[in-house]
Design a protein around this nucleic acid. Sequence first.
DNA 1: CCCTCTAGGATTGTCGACAATTTGCGTCCC
DNA 2: GGGACGCAAATTGTCGACAATCCTAGAGGG
Lengths: 239, 239
Amino acid sequence: MALPPGMLPEIEPVSRESTAAVIARQLRDAIMTGALPPGTQLGETELASRFQVSRGPLREAMQHLVSEGLLRSERHRGLFVIDLEPGDVYDIYAARSAIERAAMIRAVRGGERERVADVLAQTVAEMATAASEDDPSALSTADLRFHEALINASGSKRLVRMARTLLIETRMCLTALQSTYQRVEERVEEHTKLIQALRDGDEETALALLDSHMEDAVQRLAPGTSLIEGHAPPVPGNA
Amino acid sequence: MALPPGMLPEIEPVSRESTAAVIARQLRDAIMTGALPPGTQLGETELASRFQVSRGPLREAMQHLVSEGLLRSERHRGLFVIDLEPGDVYDIYAARSAIERAAMIRAVRGGERERVADVLAQTVAEMATAASEDDPSALSTADLRFHEALINASGSKRLVRMARTLLIETRMCLTALQSTYQRVEERVEEHTKLIQALRDGDEETALALLDSHMEDAVQRLAPGTSLIEGHAPPVPGNA
DNA sequence: CCCTCTAGGATTGTCGACAATTTGCGTCCC
DNA sequence: GGGACGCAAATTGTCGACAATCCTAGAGGG
């Protein structure tokens, strides 16, 4: 009675995702791409009617995003999309640097360097395509996919989980401060060199390149602050 | 009409915490201390009657813990306390190592080394007290408070947020594998040396001590795995 | 004796309505 | 005219009930 093995590959339950998860993902994308700009208030009633669901599942999705740090909740006031201050840009990249450094170490020391490098190279190819088509949004997307892939390659559930929010916030930064002023060739080249170092198993170089990659970004997005210097950002927006 | 400044210090709203947050904190503590052992199923109806609230706020608290990674949700099945496999121990400490390394860097390079060192020294004093009273639970609590304080000292919202779950999971590890086999003097000494390096502004030493601290712990809790070697744990419980 | 199918119970998912709290505006008094 | 008070609208917080889904135990047939 059992079906012959190999048939019907990858059949999944009709609804493998909960309603709240679907809503959360949609809101995430909207926040990430800037469709919901920072500071926007999200009314439960309005969104519920928009998504054609009750307020219950919608509230769950909101709470999820709150705990992820993408929304801030003011009691009896409402839910708002977080707005990123200069200090947050510094904070985001400092945290990303920590996470991606760890991921890179595990990727280099793991036994799948070549395979990981190939995956990363593919995202760089996407970057090149986006660049040639002069599509800044696709370029940023591919850029983030590179880093996402790197972290996935670490094989660490927790690094992946922690990085998700950080990458979304990074996307918000890139969307808000759309003018990156960086030449696309340079942007592609930095990632390419990173891949090469990984392929060579040259951990020291890879980490150094990663640090400089982050430092470049933070100095471009939040001028006057520096990761390697470590001095606090001008606006002390952190706890 | 304005009250004289300095009077009524620190007056706060009567209910500064949401109901869901209170419940979440209680469940967190219960999970952390082992009152809710890994694998336990949490029935919504039962908990709702226990907390004397409706299922709405309770569900919110649960969702919060799910997104934090302390609970896993199986659709239409129920919510369960996560159970830590050997691979998770490795993963937790690898992630902690990344976070605390970054925090240490910011603490050393920040301008408040002495003040931070004093705070940390206080938690070590707590450890010594707990050790003298032969209270392993209090000892672990103080240990975690040390690391929590270190991360708080970094001043990074995101490092703090990411570390919260990791420290709770660490506590779960320590509770599950209660026998640490480590001499308390050694345990106190490691932290003391860490503080001294921080006080001296000796970043390199501090980071080395931190790495070795983590390596010690992971080898004790999950024998056969190693952070510095980077080889995957025996049970590939990760994605 | 074992497998299959079915009915029951239990749990989660979803919904609509009510209650509590906050904010903004209008009014009144000084 | 300025400030404080109070009311009303809107929004979130909470609740109880209904619907959908899943596990389990039991009967029936092979």
